[in-house]
Nucleic acid binder design. Structure first.
Lengths: 189, 189
DNA sequence: GTACAACTAGTACGATAGTTCAACTACTGG
DNA sequence: CCAGTAGTTGAACTATCGTACTAGTTGTAC
């Protein structure tokens, strides 16, 4: 549920809308400058509001990062759920999702990864960060009964994404799809 | 307050030795508090030297982080090379290396990951960060001729490591070895 | 011993961080 | 209309940051 950044007139954003706006500004900064760049002041500036207002909604910087990570994870969760429930081949969709880490979607994937790394250090964030993996696992389970294969698909998704981020090359969804497919196929023989 | 950072025989550390000491202190901080915790002051305190000394060796914080990442990558590179050249099964060694991300080696793996994430954002650092992947790929190539399988092993190594860091569970080398093995075996069918 | 380069130490400056706070404004229920 | 509350503001506090700078010490080549 994306909120508008401002109403354009004198009316003030209130409650959840303002909250969403601040989270959006936070993510914009994580995408542009990394998690290190997130401070109350930079977020406020990005959102065009005062520093104290970000503090009004998020008492500490940690709260803000948790909210940001939750938000970005929610989005991926939603997209993976759609893949699972759709009629099409879920693996194709997953491959496309991973391939998005290159090109225009790069910053977004990088933000997700950066926040995940942060999560490894803050136990409170881990359940949120694990959701992406849980969802990929669920998707994989629609394709196989082998727990090892499920684990492999999750790890592959993560690792392929990292590879794409580290190289600057284009990512070919078909190629990704092929690698994921092989990881599953071996259990069917 | 006489210099605690001397060699014990009165001689001062100089040149590369001092450099190495500062890098070591930096890595200790990355392991304990993350890359965010790295400042000239914290590094100096960790090493038991003055702030200006860290600046003497590393003009900017960036220089210091680059040196730290290079150092940690060099170490992994060395270990993987040993695996490749050793008589034993390289895959077993790789599995052990990955399994180390749990338990006592957790902080070290986390540091490596954190610095790698940093690298995704600074093009100059990427070649350094890519070395770990290149080495794993080289190791994999001793086991298979299939480029896809090599790519899969690299991605799996990365993803499995991330999974271990995100969960707090123990990591079973045999299990990891099995998953890596399957990724290679399927190409032989 | 002297000179010069390498090194060490302490201090200081300007910038920015997280956070607090009292005062102010806009909206809402009565 | 008024009172109460949610939302908002700007200034100020303390702490720490990266870095600069000066002055002093040490090692070494002559």
């Amino acid at each position: 549920m994306t909120a508008e950044h401002d109403t354009g007139d004198g009316r003030k954003l209130r409650g959840q809308r303002r909250r969403a706006q601040i989270i959006e500004a936070t993510l914009a900064i994580v995408r542009r400058d990394g998690a290190t760049g997130v401070t109350h002041r930079t977020v406020a500036k990005e959102a065009g509001i005062t520093t104290s207002l970000t503090l009004y909604y998020f008492a500490t910087l940690d709260d803000l990062l948790v909210a940001a990570l939750t938000s970005v994870t929610d989005e991926y969760t939603h997209r993976i759920r759609q893949l699972i429930e759709s009629e099409d081949e879920p693996l194709d969709g997953l491959a496309h999702l991973i391939a998005e880490s290159a090109g225009p979607g790069r910053e977004r994937a990088l933000a997700e990864r950066e926040l995940s790394t942060l999560a490894a250090r803050r136990p409170a964030l881990r359940p949120v960060a694990r959701r992406w993996r849980d969802n990929v696992a669920e998707l994989a389970r629609t394709q196989t009964d082998d727990p090892d294969a499920v684990e492999a698909v999750v790890a592959l998704s993560d690792g392929l994404c990292a590879a794409i981020l580290l190289n600057d090359e284009e990512a070919d969804p078909n190629h990704i799809r092929a690698i994921l497919g092989k990881a599953l196929r071996r259990t069917r023989q």
